[in-house]
């Protein structure tokens, strides 16, 4: 459940982002215009410190609030690793060091190859990267090397390397954040597709009145609802863990896979055109699926965890390891 402050902030941000992230603007950001004005606005609102405790000068939101925020960022196609930045700042906050108010992307260990990462979603405009060093984290300078839309390979420069004590599963964290952005994005896709089916007519009536189309969009709605719940599971409790985050990533990826296929089927040729806004979501959804552990990767881990858990009942495993709290 979101906290009261969380709900208020989400409401404010929902409006602010709706105004700021117009489809045209998102296209410009995708093409390489840096979203500096948006970033400044977010900094001014204090969003970056959302998860930092109030005692430490932050907003003091809960982990479940972060999940709701990340859904919002997915819904509005925020072109920055904003959820990553909020999570990263919360992780390094106990160190007490001041960290520049710049976009931070979380780099799961598996994404590093000799200084340059594999392509990471939303990394294009990142200035810092949070990397895992086993029993500590480090913030290192990051610069995009090769970008497609908002995804990029980034070069990590350990020159400005700063170490922070503490541990967190960065792969699980990235998986949880991608899951939540995916859920938010899919909900937006559903709304777009329902709208399109009501407006576009063939054979003299709206597409949405054909039963074959209705049945498909109903499945998209189911997948969207399942994705939202899956994402929320990742942010239950007070720490992101691989079990819940894996469930979330696996289920939201599956929802994106099935849901996007339907969205594109219903919108026909225009759906894969640059001009139509669906692609703005499709591209992000595909980026997210390609990052932070695939469906198969997480399925394997969840399956192994079930087999090594002693409970005879899968219900008990789900209740204790994969439920709300």
């Amino acid at each position: 459940m979101t906290s009261d402050v969380g709900a208020m902030i989400i409401e404010t941000l929902d409006r602010m982002l709706a105004d700021a992230c117009t489809p045209d603007q998102v296209r410009r950001w995708n093409a390489g215009d840096a979203p500096d004005a948006l970033w400044d606005e977010l900094v001014a609102l204090g969003v970056l410190h959302a998860l930092v405790p109030e005692e430490a000068g932050g907003v003091g939101l809960t982990l479940s609030d972060l999940g709701e925020l990340a859904m919002l960022f997915g819904k509005h196609l925020v072109p920055l690793p904003l959820a990553d930045t909020i999570a990263a700042r919360a992780l390094v906050a106990p160190g007490g060091t001041t960290v520049d108010e710049v976009p931070i992307v979380i780099v799961p260990a598996a994404a590093i190859t000799q200084g340059t990462t594999l392509p990471l979603p939303l990394a294009r405009y990142a200035r810092l990267a949070l990397v895992d060093e086993g029993d500590s984290f480090a913030l290192v300078a990051a610069a995009a090397e090769e970008s497609v839309g908002t995804a990029a390979r980034i070069h990590l420069d350990s020159g400005g390397h700063r170490t922070f004590s503490g541990t967190a599963d960065l792969l699980a964290t990235a998986a949880a954040l991608r899951a939540a952005e995916t859920a938010g994005s899919l909900a937006a896709v559903l709304a777009m597709v329902v709208g399109y089916a009501g407006e576009r007519s063939q054979f003299g009536k709206p597409l949405g009145s054909f039963q074959a189309i209705q049945q498909q969009i109903a499945v998209l709605a189911e997948e969207s609802a399942a994705a939202t719940m899956a994402a929320r599971i990742a942010f239950a409790g007070d720490r992101i863990d691989a079990g819940r985050a894996g469930v979330a990533k696996l289920r939201t990826d599956a929802a994106a896979r099935r849901g996007l296929a339907i969205a594109h089927a219903v919108t026909g040729a225009i759906g894969i055109s640059e001009e139509y806004d669906l692609q703005l979501h499709s591209r992000r959804l595909i980026d997210a699926r390609m990052a932070a552990g695939s469906e198969t990767y997480w399925a394997e881990r969840i399956g192994r965890a079930r087999l090594s858990a002693p409970e005879p009942l899968t219900l008990d495993h789900v209740r204790t390891a994969l439920a709300g709290r």
Partner: peptide
């Protein structure tokens, strides 16, 4: 088999 199990467990949790 392991992956199939993982998918089923995840689906059940959701």
């Amino acid at each position: 088999a392991i992956q199939a199990l993982g998918r089923l467990v995840a689906e059940l949790a959701v």
